[in-house]
Amino acid sequence: MIGWYEANLVLIEATFLNFLLALSIQVPLRLGVFSFAGVGSYGLGAYTAAILTLRYDVPAFVAIGAAVLLAAVVGYLFSLLVARLNGLYLAMATIAFVLIIAVLATNGGELTGGANGLYGALSDLTTGGVVAVCVVVAVLLALTERGPLRRRIEAVREDPELSLSMGIGVVPMRQMAFAVSGALGACAGAMNALLRTTVSPEEINFHLIVLALTMVIIGGSRSWIGAFIGSVIFTWLPSVLASAGRWQDVVYGVIIILAAIFMPTGLLGLVQTLYQKLRGRRSAAVTAEAPADDTAEERALLQALGGESRGGVQ
């Protein structure tokens, strides 16, 4: 067991880092905001932590804390800038943000190490520390997935205009999402840079955006559990598929296609639906289809929103 743990330490750590990265996309997505800025923050965080560690030899938590804080502020300011953008236009603007960060890193001269990147950032960050951070993040996010806050988030996602008229602070919530997304992305980037002791501009690219998006969509976009499922799958899948040899990349693509077709609400959604079906069948004798908590809540919300307008044409 200990042998297995040691041999796979890199993948175990990567699972948690990918989890944070996925969350940085998922948090805005839950509000209906299509932003990839979290991936840019990943780069920002990685470089901030590496520079602080290399130049000032600060302890890991200071380096990570500074990276998170900086990225949260940048995320907030960025949200002010893109306040008028929506949908895929917003997605494009955030992709531009990510790519510009990568170009800045390449051209940062001595500060960022140019195309070489930075290396030798030895720190005292441990795997335990990474897990602890992830647990805290998961607990905090779980709190946003229940009670009135959850309903407000869903209202903003389904119909921002109506939510606004109902007195929900759509704009502050959006700004908050950008800041949180920045913090999460930076946290993942900073910890990755310190664990691997290096960071290079090649790491911050479009494929990281795609990875983060795929983890969230295939895992499940509504809950932190979905992000976690996604990060486990996409961290370990390549190693599992290595046995497929030459055709592993083809199999990988086919799995993604099948997931996109057959799991419209992600793996988490699929599990939930199956669970509800089972439970529904059992309780069918008692009440004619007892609605699950979730659906009851959703229904209440929809009534509050005026039902019919949901997802409709404005």
Binding site: N205, F206, H207, V210, P238, D249, Y252
Partner: peptide, 10 residues
């Protein structure tokens, strides 16, 4: 694109 592949040919 393939998400595991580097965007440019590294």
């Amino acid at each position: 694109m393939n998400m595991r592949k580097s965007w440019s040919r590294s």
